[in-house]
Structures are given as C-alpha cells and as structure tokens.
C-alpha cells in the first residue's frame, strides 16, 4: 500500500517502523518526546512506545553523542537527532575520536550500531548558527557512513537501512525538504546506503546533486519541458562511502557534467567527487565534451532573515543559466 507522505512524515513513519521491528532501538534527542517534536519527525512516537524508547535529552550534545556509544555498546540501537548540525559540533570528540575509531581500535571485534540524524536548518530565517551546511566535515572519515536523502522515499528507506546497519551512520537532513511530498510505501523498506538515485532520465547533460538541489532542478524541468529528455538528474544519496557507477554510466551517454552542491566550494565534497569521476572516466575512456562544472553556495555565512536568505541560495535562474551553458 502506498500513501502520500511529506519528507517529515516519511521519517516519522520510518522511525515508527524501526521502533516496532527492532526491539532494542531507542530514539534520543532534545524534544523527541514533545508533540510535533523535531519538525514533526518524532511526533506521536512517545505515546506508542513510552519514554523508555523515545528519550528526551538535556541540552548537552557532547554527552548525548558520547552516551550513545555506551548505549550501542550495551546492545541498544540508538537513533540520535541533533536538531541542527551546528549543535552536533559539540560532539566532535565523540564522533571523530570514539565512534569513528571504535571498530578499528577494537581490531574489528566490536561495532557500534548507531544512527545520528543531523539537520541543516535551511529555510525561514535560521541564520549563521543554525543553517551551516557542515556535512563535508563529517564525510570521508573511516568508520562513519554519511548519507543525505532528499526525497521522502529515500528519507524513509535510508533511515531504516541505517537503523539496521551495524556500522555508525550519520544522516543529513535538510529542513527545507520537510514539506516535500511523495507517494511512498506505508510498510517498511530499505534503501542501500551508498546509493545514487536517478531522478530524471535524459540524453544530453548529467547533473549530479549533493544535497537538496535536485528538487530545484526538477522544478526547472517541470517548467521547461524541452529539458525533460535532455537532463539526466542523479542524486548522490550516499556521500561516504561513495559510489559513482551511475554517474559514470550516464556520462558515457551525455558526455557533459554539472555537479551541484549544497555547500561552499571551499569546504564541499564536490571537488573530491569530481576528481573521482574524472579518474574513472579516463579509465573507461569516456571523453567529456565540455569541461565539467561545479556549482556551490556563495562563500559566505548564511543570513538570517528569510528575504536575505533567498538571495543567498541557488535559484532557478542561476541553475537554468548554467544548464543552458553546458547543454
């Protein structure tokens, strides 16, 4: 059975499924037990599963992440949420020194099954301390998987797969996507963590998106129907470890590439991914017709007011111009 869910409702339904099917899973975070908790993603779970499974936590992110290690090591499967990725910065010690190294320094004898949701607070005036796109800091660290789903279908499937994973997984969610709706299965399902999601099939130009840009591209395609068969749109859901098989396969056909990243060029993972793509194209003797293009956010902090925020992010005009240039 399928039903139309928003991105937030899809996560809520995923969490519900996890709590139902994995008896030792727990949800931990500030306000997860409140009505409408965490942008609606944890709404109603406390009533179904009690405060032993849905656990509110004081404002101490450092301890929250640390303690999740202890919980996971005691056979619980914690799913943490940091309401802003900016707050998760308090847990760098736990993330880099402990979670990332846990399996390695145990000599492969011990694993930490834990999930950390971190939210990028784009949308409606979140400002420089609530909406930084800091996900690249968490990418490429051996021992931690990083994923960034951008559709309700993937949000639910990735969340369930992460909860089933015996390795630590960080899920980056964009607050701006929470209202995005899609028809998805009501029952549980899982999506591979190192997944590339093809969102439009086209013949002339490959656009690979890291982060929330793919929805904007779809909007452009919707408005410019002549682009429908030209653009092959691929969402990189798995950021680390990274698979680029579908992008390379698509380039064999289109021979043109734009990478759009929801982060500053200076920090982002786009360059690394581009490097990897070029290397693989060379190996497979795929010759690109035009120089690949990388589009990131302006190298600045993000303004608070909604009106200024709109100036900051990539808009349809910028992207359409880039598409025309590369086609």
């Amino acid at each position: 059975m399928k039903k139309i869910y928003s991105y937030a409702e899809a996560i809520n339904s995923g969490l519900d499924y996890i709590l139902k099917k994995i008896p030792n899973s727990v949800i931990v975070g500030q306000g997860v037990d409140r009505p409408g908790g965490v942008f609606g993603t944890t709404d109603g779970l406390i009533g179904k599963y009690s405060n032993k499974r849905v656990i509110d936590f004081p404002i101490c992110e450092s301890l929250m992440t640390s303690s999740a290690i202890g919980m996971a090591n005691r056979k619980l499967r914690p799913i943490l949420v940091h309401q802003r990725i900016d707050f998760a910065m308090y847990s760098f010690d736990a993330l880099f020194n402990w979670i990332a190294t846990w399996r390695f320094k145990s000599g492969g004898t011990s694993t930490l099954p834990l999930v950390i949701r971190a939210i990028i607070g784009r949308g409606w005036g979140q400002g420089p301390q609530h909406s930084k796109p800091l996900y690249p800091l968490l990418s490429g660290i051996p021992g931690i998987k990083l994923v960034m789903p951008t559709t309700p279908f993937d949000a639910k499937g990735i969340l369930i797969a992460s909860a089933l994973s015996n390795d630590p997984v960080i899920i980056i969610e964009h607050r701006s996507l929470y209202g995005l709706k899609e028809e998805i299965p009501v029952d549980g399902y899982a999506v591979e963590l190192d997944h590339e999601r093809i969102r439009n099939i086209g013949e002339k130009l490959t656009i690979a998106c890291i982060g929330d840009a793919s929805n904007l591209i779809l909007k452009i395609i919707e408005k410019n129907r002549n682009l429908k068969n030209k653009i092959e749109l691929i969402d990189l859901v798995g950021i680390y470890p990274l698979t680029i098989t579908k992008i390379v396969k698509s380039l064999k056909k289109t021979k043109k590439l734009i990478i759009i990243e929801s982060c500053w060029d200076s920090l982002g993972v786009g360059h690394k991914i581009l490097n990897k793509i070029i290397k693989e194209c060379n190996e497979k003797k795929i010759k690109l017709e035009k120089e690949p293009m990388l589009i990131g956010l302006p190298e600045s902090h993000i303004p608070t007011s909604h009106y200024n925020e709109n100036q900051f992010y990539l808009d349809e005009n910028i992207l359409l111009k880039a598409i025309r240039k590369k086609l």
Partner: peptide, 10 residues
C-alpha cells in the same frame, strides 16, 4: 577494519 558492512537481517 573500519566498516563491518553488516545489517540486521530484517
């Protein structure tokens, strides 16, 4: 050494 790549068999 760093990843088990294992899942609960749900």
């Amino acid at each position: 050494l760093n990843f088990s790549d294992e899942y609960l068999p749900l």
